[in-house]
Design a protein around this nucleic acid. Structure first.
Length: 896
RNA sequence: GCUCGGGUGGUGGAAUUGGUAGACACGUUGGACUUAAAAUCCAAUGAACAGUAAUGUUCGUGCGGGUUCAAGUCCCGCCCCGAGUACCA
């Protein structure tokens, strides 16, 4: 009987969806397990074989845990607000809502073909107003909260203690300055050419992702989230998370905590400059100060003679793009202000400079330059002939030394260890009120507004400068239609042009809505909470459901979200925790990153400035350029099907081709993308081999976390395995198993496999599981095992990986219940014991023979036997045995 | 530059705390079945050398050292590839 995967798969997919097999509800009598995928952005090009990798892995875990007796929550939804749909709308005029709907339908269809066990009743879309109502609600919670530094947590704004003696305006200003969501003028990435503001992700190396135009910084009014208040907690709580070390490290680096000191350099009676340094021990080597061009003191401190130069420099550096700033790392620029300050320790009078290598956003926007022990300061000092003083011994003379050592040139402190001196400097500075120990973070507050249409509207109105938050009852603030999706040339959102929406008349008073929208991150910051109670209209999720399901037990997704999404989601979760809405401080207990599946692009080679294409084996003779072609145009690995190519495009039809016998293309591993024509669609694999084969093959390809190129060649191995597996249960006529006693060897191999699979699934080592299945099935077929006792267990064992075929077989055993409701097999140690074993022994590669030992024969017994009865074992091939190395009941080596 | 991952056959990849390196699969070669092909099944397959053969020997986990009875695994010093980050004082 043939393995007809097509009918089997469609049969069980409709069975699961009709019977809602994977629908879950809260059940306090069962332990819970929450398996979450990073929900996708429904892009227009559909799924490629790289997408399902994580979904298949999470599905295996879900099915496994279900069989293990857990109440498994495994939901799916769509991150449906986002830029590509908006860009498509700008191009075509089609409403993003419509294109998004179409894309979601396609995604869902493709996902369902893979046999993923989602509870689709919990599906959510971030662009549904019933969803973003609560995104807006959370925004308002942030707006109405402040961070209490003494209690180290967020509190409702009504609990904020307002200093006495403030007038009404000052009070409002004070409160606004403490909110977790606040308005500020912030430098944004402004692209003159495109006439729009870009997010950081849209800027690559100082150029716009689209078009490659220069991007400059420009201050604009923005909503900002005070994530910096949580720096320490975001850093601290990493310790309790079961996440890959590399991800924790990137978060740690992103937060960028550094301990040091704030030091005050006095200029005169009325003015001073504060700097931040991590090396207070080098204070005697601070021979000049540098301010960032954006620092407000820069202009104030400039003397008349230098005014023109300084203003010129500041103007120039504000126009510089990020790219230009980055280019000049070695070649530092700067100007002298004409002013001087006093080094608080050496009392020396030192010059104050302005240079764009100092960043305004970090520390105080000013540094004490120690050219002897900081490479940037060293470069700068060398260029402008400033004094270089060595105060820590080490390195070569005249060089810049950044290591530790003994203090010199520092008056009475010479000879101290620099680490000890650090503390002493801080103490002295604190005593003389010239500075203090401080901690600085690289993390900046999160710019939360986008000048875009396709995002959540911000539920705030303005009465002039006064902000009026909408009330909970007024939510959601629906996204209105607009005449055009283009952003305005001044960078404001398309919503700003919709006057009837923007202007609100309430009780005869005029208000204006905020016209910017939220970034794409907003919806994904809390979606895992909505899955718990997706249709609730009273709250974002019922508290007892949150208590039961949270935290997420396993979160699977790509490493590209290592920092931003995971950091933002943790931040929102902590705020909700502080305000009492969720029960734990961290949302994701365990994180697993699946690697990317790469495409194998194909290239043909064209002779430059000609219409002639050359086979890859002949290119040495010509000056050629390579051109991406569709991998569908290949006959096999690297041979081009010329006919297909010619028919694919008119420009190929009329071209000339040079080749011997075959036209060869070159191959290269790249990211899978539509523009590279290297997409392999899961639909076609499912069509040809079935979803079970695809699922197993994706797992078999290699370790889950590792990136690997897609190669369809190997898939027949997995497909053959499934056929063999099928044939264990079937003969030519049909289902055929017996009630006879199983073969002893079958039980051994079965239980060995059960043991391995149980531990490998827990460790997310799915590729080794598949290998174990193959070995097991191979052995059972060669033993011709027909016993249902063994075959039932085998079927259960494989079902998380290949659910369709296993459901089909399971039903043939006469079972009416789905295989997903059965218990996962557990191994019996009894079958794993081997009573005797035979091992070859080698010594220096020269001696090779076999010895047989009984199981109870252990290292001590052999040693005993040697000492007690010299005649028996002390000599082997004429050599006297000194020692037998015996590991885990195995003779490993014999020492003579 | 810095940080983090990796380098194992023709290929993807296995290898508990150091314990017979190359599991499993692809590919290749040979064979069976077939008029033929596909499909399927069986066998061989790290390299080199010797042998009619069974087999044996030597070399083999990026390179060079070290520890150990024993190193893909541990230590020291390099080389290469990938990812992230970018003047963070």
């Amino acid at each position: 009987m043939v393995y007809d995967f097509k009918s089997i798969e469609s049969k069980w997919q409709s069975y699961w969806s009709e019977n809602k097999t994977f629908k879950v509800a809260m059940d306090n009598t069962m332990p819970k397990y929450y398996v979450l995928d990073m929900f996708p952005y429904p892009s227009g090009s559909g799924l490629h074989v790289g997408h399902p990798l994580g979904y298949i892995a999470s599905d295996i875990i879900s099915r496994f845990k279900r069989n293990k007796g857990f109440n498994v929550l495994h939901p799916m939804g769509f991150d449906s607000f986002g830029l590509p749909a908006e860009q498509y709308a700008i191009k075509t005029g089609k409403h993003p809502r419509l294109t998004t709907e179409i894309n979601i339908k396609r995604f869902k269809k493709q996902l369902n073909k893979l046999g993923l066990s989602y509870d689709w009743d919990r599906e959510i879309k971030t662009s549904d107003s019933s969803y973003y109502k609560w995104t807006q609600w959370i925004f308002l919670k942030l707006y109405n909260s402040f961070f209490d530094i003494t209690d180290n947590k967020a509190k409702d704004i009504s609990e904020l203690k307002i200093p006495k003696g403030l007038n009404e305006d000052e009070k409002i200003q004070f409160i606004d300055s403490k909110r977790l969501a606040y308005l500020d003028n912030i430098d944004v990435n402004w692209c003159e050419e495109l006439g729009t503001v870009l997010s950081n992700e849209e800027v690559i190396g100082g150029l716009s992702e689209r078009g490659g135009y220069p991007v400059v910084r420009k201050p604009m009014r923005q909503w900002v989230m005070r994530i910096t208040a949580y720096s320490e907690r975001l850093l601290d709580d990493l310790k309790i998370l079961d996440w890959p070390e590399s991800i924790k490290l990137s978060q740690k680096n992103w937060i960028g905590k550094s301990e040091g000191a704030k030091i005050r350099f006095v200029i005169d009676k009325n003015s001073f400059i504060d700097v931040f340094t991590t090396r207070p021990d080098t204070i005697f080597g601070a021979t000049y100060l540098v301010l960032a061009p954006e620092n407000k003191l820069s202009i104030k401190l400039t003397t008349k003679e230098n005014k023109n130069l300084v203003e010129d420099y500041i103007a120039k550096s504000s126009q510089k793009s990020d790219l230009e700033r980055q280019e000049n790392i070695k070649d530092k620029t700067g100007v002298f202000t004409g002013s001087y300050a006093f080094n608080p320790m050496s009392k020396e009078k030192i010059p104050i400079w302005i240079a764009d290598y100092v960043l305004s956003g970090y520390g105080t926007g000013a540094v004490m330059a120690v050219p002897g022990h900081d490479e940037r300061d060293y470069e700068f000092a060398k260029k402008f002939n400033l004094k270089i003083l060595s105060v820590v011994q080490g390195g070569n003379k005249g060089d810049c030394y950044t290591g530790n050592g003994i203090i010199t040139n520092s008056g009475k402190f010479n000879g101290l260890d620099n680490q000890k001196f650090k503390k002493i400097v801080c103490d002295i500075l604190e005593e003389t009120e010239a500075g203090e120990k401080t901690i600085n973070y690289k993390l900046r507050d999160w710019i939360f507004t986008r000048q875009r249409y396709w995002g959540e509207p911000i539920p705030i109105m303005f009465d002039g400068k006064i902000k009026i938050p909408m009330t909970d009852r007024e939510l959601p603030l629906e996204l209105p239609d607009v005449d055009s999706f283009k952003p305005a040339s001044d960078g404001s959102s398309p919503l700003a042009r919709n006057n009837s929406w923007k202007n609100v008349l309430l009780d005869g008073k005029k208000y204006e809505r905020e016209t910017n929208t939220m970034p794409q991150w907003a919806g994904s910051c809390w979606y895992f909470l909505r899955f718990l109670d997706p249709r609730n209209s009273e709250s974002f999720a019922e508290k007892n459901k949150i208590d039961y399901w949270m935290p997420v037990d396993v979160y699977i997704g790509g490493a590209e979200h290592a920092v931003l999404h995971l950091l933002y989601a943790r931040f929102w979760h902590k705020v909700l925790y502080d305000l009492g809405y969720v029960s734990g401080p961290e949302p994701f207990k365990k994180l697993v990153n699946q690697g990317m599946i790469l495409g194998n692009s194909a290239f043909i080679h064209r002779i430059k400035n000609s219409n002639t294409y050359v086979s890859y084996d002949l290119i040495e003779k010509y000056d050629v350029q390579k051109i991406n072609i569709d991998i569908d145009l290949l006959n096999n690995n690297n041979e081009l099907n010329l006919e297909k190519l010619k028919n694919s495009d008119i420009k190929y039809k009329n071209a000339n081709y040079k080749f011997n016998e075959k036209f060869i293309v070159s191959r290269e591993v790249e990211k899978m993308s539509k523009s590279k024509f290297n997409i392999v669609s899961p639909d076609r694999i499912c069509e040809k081999y079935g979803a079970d084969t695809l699922r197993m093959y994706e797992m078999f390809l290699g370790p889950l976390e590792q990136s690997k190129p897609w190669n369809t060649d190997g898939i027949t191995g997995v497909h053959n395995f499934l056929k063999k597996f099928w044939n264990l249960y079937h003969d030519e006529i049909g289902f055929n198993v017996s009630d006879s006693k199983p073969n002893e060897n079958s039980l051994k191999i079965l239980h060995k496999t059960i043991k391995k699979v149980n531990s490998d699934i827990e460790n997310f080592s799915f590729n080794t599981c598949v290998s174990a299945f193959m070995i097991c099935v191979n052995e059972l077929s060669s033993l011709n095992e027909k016993s249902s006792e063994v075959l039932r267990q085998l079927c259960l064992l494989i079902s998380p990986f290949a659910p369709h075929i296993c459901e089909e077989i399971w039903s043939k055993f006469g079972e009416s219940d789905s295989i997903s409701n059965q218990d996962f097999p557990t191994h019996d140690e009894l079958y794993l014991i081997e009573d005797k074993f035979e091992y070859p022994i080698s010594f220096n590669g020269k001696l090779r023979f076999k010895m047989i030992f009984k199981l109870d024969c252990e290292f001590n017994d052999i040693e005993k036997e040697i000492s007690e009865n010299e005649k028996v074992n002390t000599y082997l091939k004429g050599k006297k045995i000194k020692k037998i190395i015996f590991v885990k009941n195995k003779i490993i080596n014999i020492v003579f």
